[in-house]
């Protein structure tokens, strides 16, 4: 029983890490769209860096949540 529980724990932790891929896509999306917008209108780019970082932070937070789930499975369950 214990072995199965541990197996499930590790599998779950590994699966939770897949969630980080979503965060990666999200952050890349934010940065890419910012860059394409900035190249089209460079004069407006400087004013939007704050928004860029806020967007990145929100996208990244979800990846951190999946990382947290993985950590919890590994160390705290």
């Amino acid at each position: 029983m214990e072995g199965i529980a541990q197996l499930g724990q590790y599998l779950g932790a590994g699966l939770a890490c897949i969630g980080m891929a979503g965060a990666a896509v999200g952050v890349g999306n934010v940065a890419g769209n910012y860059l394409s917008g900035a190249l089209r209108n460079p004069s407006a780019a400087a004013g939007q860096t704050a928004t860029l970082f806020i967007g990145m932070a929100f996208a990244e937070a979800l990846g951190i949540f999946s990382f947290l789930v993985a950590l919890l499975l590994m160390f705290a369950v």
């Binding site: 919890l72 590994m74 160390f75 705290a76 369950v77």
Partner: peptide, 11 residues
Amino acid sequence: TEAASGGMPQL
């Protein structure tokens, strides 16, 4: 003493 709280010092 911390055995019950698991391996994550944050928790």
